[in-house]
Amino acid sequence: MFEAKLTESTTIKRVLDAIKDLIQQANFDCSADGLSLQAMDTPHVCLTTMTLRSQAFEVYRCDRPLSMGINLSSISKILKCAASKDSVKIVADDEGADCAEFIFENESADRIAHFELKLMDIDSEHLSIPEDSDYQAIISMPSAEYRRIFSDLSIIGDTITIEINKNTACFSVEGDIGNGSLNLAQTDSADEKNPVTINVKEPVKMTFPGKYLNTFTKAVPISEFVTLCLTDGNPLAIEFSLPDEAGFVRYFLAPKIDQ
């Protein structure tokens, strides 16, 4: 038996919004620890991972691990039927269920909606992601700042370079109409309302596809802050964490390299 209840549908709606433009379908792996997912996008440029820890749920029961193959567009359609303040309960049989049940209940518990989502058999390759990568540079910024930087720059072109030196990050773009750049310095004061922090072990300069950096802005409502981790020649790791360590959405984006 798998049963998980979220107090408000907002949490899962936001998480799905953050991943559904990158992934068409994925296995939602349920274990005693929580609900998680990982999948590559179709062109295999980006790996998206998501975790909702059991503590994110008001009720969480998973007697034995199960994997629910879900079409992201279908689950999003069903969740559109939940008001943001409605609770969401997901119920599935852990013995080869062919559908999962979704129950939405309003705050006064006098309106209850039931939906059944057909599950799919998805044959996906699971990749192992190192837990404690030692990155050359880590930058944390308000997620609203992230959105502004990459929605602006990706309009100019699709080749975006991130260069991080001591206390400064430079984001630049090359496009057909011209180019542009933006410098962001670490904020001085620790009690600044919207801090930017930059930790550099070694300066790093890497190039990434702007279209993806812009797509990741769909995760901005999840978190007030975002962390970007870079190591030369390796994928960029971008993390949006849910409040109270309830979970996260992480993207790993392959770099563009000079030939």
């Binding site: 699971h126 990749l127 390796n234 392959a254 563009k256």
Partner: peptide, 14 residues
């Protein structure tokens, strides 16, 4: 010319 790498290159199958 810049070449877009594939993400599958960086992670081993679990």
């Amino acid at each position: 010319k810049r070449h877009q790498m594939l993400i599958s290159r960086f992670f081993a199958p679990a």
